[in-house]
Design a protein around this nucleic acid. Structure first.
Lengths: 113, 113
DNA sequence: TCTATATACATAAGACTTTCAGGTATCCTC
DNA sequence: GAGGATACCTGAAAGTCTTATGTATATAGA
C-alpha cells in the first residue's frame, strides 16, 4: 500500500524547483508533476506553496518566466533557470549535502539503552 | 576557515533533540552544546528555538523533565526520553531517511546543458 | 449531456517553526 | 570588577508551509 506523501521541510522547496528547472524549462504545473513522478509520490507539492515559490525565485532573479502554449495547446507560464539560478542551485546543492552530513553525525550517534 | 553554521530546516529540530536525548538524559543547554560539538559547529541551535521545542516535546509526552543539579553544582532542568519518545524517534528517523532518498531522486536527475 | 478528472493559474487565512534580540542569574577566571 | 561560560526564559518578526477557495478550459466516460 502507498505511504502518505511527505510534508515538505520548510526551506527545501526552492532547491527542488531549481533542480527541476535545470532538467528542462517547464511551467508550474509541470514542475509539480515532475516532482511528484520523480519521487514516486513522496513529494506532492501543494499549489499554495509552488506558485508563491516560483514568484519568489523570479523576484530573486533565479528563474525567468514567459507565457506560452503547452503541447496540448493550453496557456501556461514557462519558467527557466537564469545563469544566477544555476549558481544558486550549485550553492544550495552543497548546502543540502552538508546538511545531510550534519544530520548523519547526530542521527548516527550510538543511543544508550 | 570555518564556514557559517547552517540554518535549521523547519521540522528537523525535534528529531535532533530526540536523538540527542537518546544518547543520555541531558539539560537544555547540554543538548545545545552536544549538537554543536557533534556537528562540528554546523548546527548551532538558537535558544529561542531550543527551549520552546523542549516544551513542545514535553507537552506531546515525548520527553519528561526534572530539575536537578549539574556536575558543577548548578540548577538545570534535565530531560529524558519517554517510551513514547523512543517510538517517535524511530518514526522520525524513518521519515528523515525517506526524505533524503526522495531528495536524492530529484537532485540526482541529470541536468540539461 | 452531464459529470468528474486533469490541466493550469492564483490568492488568502491560518498554523507553525525558526531567527534575532532581549532579559535574569550564577560561577569562574583574569 | 569585567568578561565569558553556564543555564533558563520570552516576545517580536520573518518566513514557509498546508488547506481552502476561486477561475477557466479540455477531455473522457456514463
Amino acid at each position: 500500500m502507498a505511504e502518505r506523501s511527505l510534508e515538505l521541510l520548510k526551506g527545501t522547496l526552492d532547491v527542488l524547483i531549481l533542480k527541476t528547472l535545470s532538467t528542462a524549462p517547464m511551467h508550474g504545473y509541470g514542475v509539480s508533476r515532475w516532482l511528484r513522478e520523480t519521487t514516486g509520490e513522496d513529494f506532492k507539492v501543494e499549489e499554495g506553496a509552488l506558485y508563491p515559490a516560483l514568484r519568489r525565485l523570479e523576484k530573486k532573479g533565479l528563474v525567468e518566466s514567459e507565457w506560452g502554449e503547452t503541447d496540448t495547446g493550453r496557456e501556461a507560464k514557462f519558467y527557466r533557470l537564469t545563469a544566477q539560478g544555476r549558481g544558486a542551485l550549485e550553492t544550495e546543492l552543497r548546502t543540502w549535502h552538508r546538511y545531510v552530513q550534519a544530520m548523519g553525525k547526530v542521527l548516527g550517534a550510538p543511543s544508550r539503552g
